[in-house]
Structures are given as structure tokens and as C-alpha cells.
Amino acid sequence: MSNPIIEAHNVCFQYEDAAAPAVKDVSLTVEAGEFVAILGRNGSGKSTFAKLLNALLLPTGGTLRVNGLEARTEDDCYEVRRSCGMVFQNPDNQIVATIVEEDCAFGLENLGTPPEEIRRRVDEALLDVGMAEQAGASPSMLSGGQKQRVAVAGVLAMRPRIIVFDESTAMLDPVGRRDVFELARRLNREEGITIVWITHFMEEAALADRLLVMDRGRVALAGAPREVFAQVDRIMKLGLDVPEMMKLAARLRRAGVKLPEGIMTVDEMAVELCRLK
């Protein structure tokens, strides 16, 4: 039973003054409710692809349907942006207002939502991301992770079906990173929101339902994280990394230890090794 929410067919995008396209012939389908991670080096086209999903950029070739809609007119673009929210990398540069709850309301205000409805949804969204207590605070007093949670709340209040996180944890410390990632996972599991998680942290990518690796504008590898990361050499060659345990498992296997494929976490490794003891 397939229920695609993002359908890309040979999507291309080239910036006006660029020599080569930033996104080349990308074809993929994302099912509603999936958590898809996109991994790739800086400049691999992953951020450009994110902006295409949100109709901030329009494909220069191919077709891209998001939530059943192909953005052709300006109104379509706003509809796509409403159903597909986006959280950016720099927590400082995406907060518009001087008060947390005002920022959270920004999207709904733009959509012309009635004030009482905005109030209700903003309160809900702030509660959902655990920032209700800071509703009246100034964003400049918050930590990076908290700012990102406010940004998520601002998107959430618009009731999107998809949220794209464009390297939203790149500038955070480990605590903030875990916080924001866990939040995205919870929204995916509990509220059924489709997540496109762009990152270059493989620990995060390892926990996705599906993993796409982009390289020079194309999708180079795709599949379940375990399958993709099993290609250790290929991934390293693409300038990325694989989880430590996968590297260790490969090393142990080479030395003759009989380990099953697809060990990614410390827990899994410990369980397997204890079985051999």
C-alpha cells in the first residue's frame, strides 16, 4: 500500500550563474510517514534539493510533486510551503520576532489565520516542542538547541505534513543536537509527520527509515541505513563516514569473527559479541 507524499522524476536544478547543475536527474519517492535521511558532502546538492521540496526553488527540469501538488504558480508555491515546512541550519537566522511566541505565530499570521486559532495552535506547538515555559522570552536568551525547537514549533503551528530539516543540527552542541533530533523522531512516530533529515552526521542518518546519499547533485546510494553503510569503502570515498561499530564489525569480520551483517550500534555489537563469548 503505497502513499507517496514526495515524488521526484528526473528533477534537475541549475543556478543561473553556475557552470553545472546543482541537482541532476534526481528521481525518488518518499512515502507519507517515512523518516528519510539525506547524507552528502558540502556542495553535494542536498541543500538545493531541500529548497526544491519547499518550493523556495523551482526545478529547471523534471517534475516534483509534494503532497500531490506540483508548484507551477505562486499560489501553488505557498501551498507547498505550508504543507512542507523547513527548518534551516543557522538557528539565529530563521527567527523573525523578538518574542518566542510571536515568532511561532509568524507563519500562521502570513497565512491569514484568525487570531484565536493562531493563539491555540501556537500554544499547542510550543507545548509540543517543550518550549511553552519560554513563550514570552526573547530568542536571544535561548541556547542554540532551544532556538531550533522554536523554529520547529513555528513550522509545526502551520500543520505541515512534511518537515525538511536542512542540517539543522550542524551548529549545535551534542546536547542540542540530540534534543532536536529526538524531537524530529517523535514528531515522525507520534504525529505521523514525514521527515526529510539532511545531515552529515552519520549517527543521525543511521536511525532513519531510509537513507539517501547524494554526491555531485545525484543520488549515489539509497536504501536502509544498514545496507547503505555496509558499503564502508564506497561511503568513505564519497567523503562521508560510517558508524564506528560498522567499521569495527568489518574489521572483526576480516579477522575471522562471525558477525552478522548490519551491526550499527554499541548495543547490537555488545549483544553479538556476548553471544560468541
Binding site: R81, A105, G107, P115
Partner: peptide
């Protein structure tokens, strides 16, 4: 870009929470 992504299109048709 972030404002665009949240459907900002100027003052027309905009409401306010407060």
C-alpha cells in the same frame, strides 16, 4: 529565505495573533 519558507508575502492578507 526562512521568511519565504514560512509563506511570508508582505502585509496583504496577514493577520496578527496579538
Amino acid at each position: 529565505l526562512a521568511m519565504d519558507a514560512r509563506c511570508y508575502r508582505g502585509g496583504a492578507g496577514r493577520t496578527r495573533m496579538h
